[in-house]
């Protein structure tokens, strides 16, 4: 176990020789260790997000946050492998899965490291009982920024892993773009199904909404966009 813990800084540094060796080696232990790190660090960050609302919500989100990562990885595993093959990367299924898992491990490590700061900010955020929704909006925005930054850093490393194995810069770029697009597309929908994560301050605390499979993320975005456009174009009707 200690051997795998020592790999964490090496993974974050993107040390090419070691990572190349891990990608080639047929070891299930390293995959399981990455899953363990995602579960612990993702769970910690999820708990910090949910704590904004209540302890129960923190427990729900601590379970759902790593689950979202695993489901996204699993749903896209075959597709990402095929995309890599079609583009001429010549990676095995295990290598594509491991590369993505390692990238998610880096993202959750960053999120885990940011957890104390998020909890501290949460401690200083005006509670819902104060009647102000400023805290909710601020906390929502803060988490979007932190998760986006962690995702960005993880994808930079993913690009590094691929460049290491493939050796061609344009091809590695294409594959990362394709994988990120797929992960965002599926991840957006899965996060919709597993909602709420931060939750609306006016709705009750739930593990899942009563209609998790009713509608999808993109329909919701489309409806919100239409509503916004309608409000802008006909403000008088809204006032009436």
């Amino acid at each position: 176990m200690n051997k795998y813990f020592q790999r964490i800084p090496v993974l974050c540094r993107g040390d090419s020789e070691s990572i190349s060796e891990w990608l080639d080696r047929q070891s299930i232990h390293w995959i399981l260790f990455c899953c363990l790190v995602i579960t612990i660090c993702g769970g910690m960050y999820g708990a910090a997000i949910g704590l904004w609302r209540a302890g129960l919500m923190a427990t729900y989100v601590a379970i759902k946050f790593p689950l979202l990562i695993f489901l996204t990885t699993l749903c896209n595993a075959v597709l990402n492998w095929m995309l890599a093959l079609v583009m001429g990367a010549g990676l095995t299924f295990r290598q594509t899965l491991l590369a993505q898992l390692m990238s998610f491990t880096i993202a959750t490590l960053i999120l885990g490291a940011m957890t104390p700061i998020v909890v501290f900010i949460l401690y200083n955020t005006p509670p819902l009982s104060s009647g102000s929704h400023f805290g909710h909006s601020f906390f929502l925005l803060l988490n979007v920024v932190i998760i986006a930054a962690a995702g960005f850093a993880a994808n930079i490393r993913l690009y590094g892993f691929l460049l290491l194995k493939i050796g061609s810069r344009p091809l590695a770029q294409k594959i990362v773009m394709a994988w990120v697009a797929g992960n965002l597309f599926v991840g957006g929908q899965l996060s919709w199904n597993l909602r709420p994560f931060i939750g609306s301050p006016t709705l009750e605390i739930q593990c899942l909404r009563p209609d998790p499979f009713d509608g999808n993320f993109y329909e919701s975005v489309y409806r919100s966009g239409r509503r916004l456009l309608h409000n802008i174009t006909s403000p008088e009707k809204q006032r009436k």
Binding site: R13, A113, M114
Partner: peptide, 20 residues
């Protein structure tokens, strides 16, 4: 300092830092 220490370590590793 304690709150920010984990993020310092991880960000340092991401920049290629070799310290424990």
């Amino acid at each position: 300092a304690a709150i920010c220490l984990p993020s310092l370590y991880i960000l340092l590793c991401l920049s290629g830092g070799d310290q424990t």
